[in-house]
């Protein structure tokens, strides 16, 4: 096509300026560059003309990508989680898919967020739409991105327990050209868009950027309870068989701003088990079973420990044993 339009220019001298929309990323991979020279002359008083042979070379694919956060500052996160937004731009000259990875653990983090999903903004509205935007499962590349086009990528995160307001965290989104990455100039024979080779560009065919989170729990403290159990059977194993002792551990964590008052942790003794008298403990210190001056009481139906006033950031562990009947 390009060739033909130039022949037109040369032969009938049609003036057509600025007709080639140049991409920022350059000529599209697979484009042929063709060259033919022409000569005119006089010989023995008569005009003559001659064309050269035509030389053709194909433009190869250059692999370049940029990643930029689209969030103007730290994104607030609370118990319902948060969504970070990035753009991934194909700075190369051929359609290319990208492999995305997220690193939650960044030096200086107060906490590391839990990544719940990575999604592509398929309807291009800049807002994560659950159920309609494309969730990328691990190991799956993005859809192909045209040269100069950008994908909006969402990273969904949840807040691990135990954080307080203003705790900060960053995570890093990295995009790598699916064809390959490496030192600039590294080439992948025959793997370029348009049938040529693919060559790693100045970016190394990968890029990354950081997104930032800040905990904002809306002023009210948040209480999280995490219960776990360990089993010791009479034979030295961990089977919950009759006679086995199950130790329950309840971790109570307060996050957010301020403190909570009158915090009481209570739990029922599970059916089919019997409370082991005298096993109740708070932060590794024994409590009596009786309803008396210490914080705890226990009987055959359940346990209860009064933690009183607990400030944000503090945590307490309540433990008790039951025997499997």
């Amino acid at each position: 096509m390009i060739k033909n339009s130039h022949y037109l220019l040369a032969t009938v001298a049609v003036v057509s300026l600025g007709a080639t929309p140049a991409l920022a990323a350059g000529v599209l991979a697979g484009t042929d560059i063709e060259n033919t020279a022409t000569a005119t002359y006089q010989i023995g008083g008569s005009p003559g003309a001659v064309d050269s042979n035509t030389v053709t070379i194909r433009v190869d694919e250059v692999l370049n990508v940029s990643v930029t956060t689209l969030d103007s500052g730290s994104v607030a996160i609370d118990g319902t989680g948060a969504v970070l937004t990035f753009s991934v731009t194909n700075e190369g000259n051929g359609p290319e898919a990208f492999d995305l990875t997220v690193l939650e653990s960044i030096g200086g983090n107060d906490f590391n967020a839990n990544v719940t999903f990575v999604a592509v903004d398929t309807n291009n509205n800049g807002i994560y739409d659950p159920g309609s935007d494309l969730i990328l499962t691990t190991g799956v590349s993005t859809p192909s991105v045209d040269p100069d086009d950008a994908l909006t990528v969402f990273v969904g995160v949840s807040l691990p327990g135990g954080q307080t307001d203003s705790d900060a965290s960053q995570l890093r989104l990295t995009a790598e050209a699916a064809t390959g990455t490496g030192a600039p100039g590294t080439s992948f024979a025959g793997q370029g868009a348009g049938g040529g080779d693919a060559v790693v560009g100045a970016t190394g065919a990968d890029d990354d950027d950081l997104g930032a989170l800040i905990v904002s729990l809306g002023g009210s403290p948040l209480v999280a309870l995490t219960k776990s159990a360990t089993v010791a059977d009479p034979f030295g194993g961990t089977q919950p068989i009759p006679g086995a002792i199950v130790t329950y551990s309840i971790l109570a964590t307060v996050s957010g701003t301020g403190s909570v008052d009158l915090l009481t942790v209570s739990d029922a003794i599970p059916a089919g088990t019997t409370y082991v008298p005298g096993s109740l403990a708070l932060d590794s210190g024994s409590l009596t079973d009786a309803a008396d001056t210490d914080a705890g009481e226990a009987n055959g139906s359940g346990i209860s420990v009064d933690l009183g006033s607990v400030t944000s950031g503090a945590s307490h562990t309540v433990e008790f044993d039951v025997e499997v009947n």
Binding site: I2, K3, S5, H6, Y7, L9, A10, A19, T20, V27, T31, I33, E34, N35, T36, A37, T38, A39, T40, Y41, V59
Partner: peptide, 10 residues
Amino acid sequence: FVITNPVPNS
């Protein structure tokens, strides 16, 4: 003798 070389679009 005049050699003319059109410049390819790209």
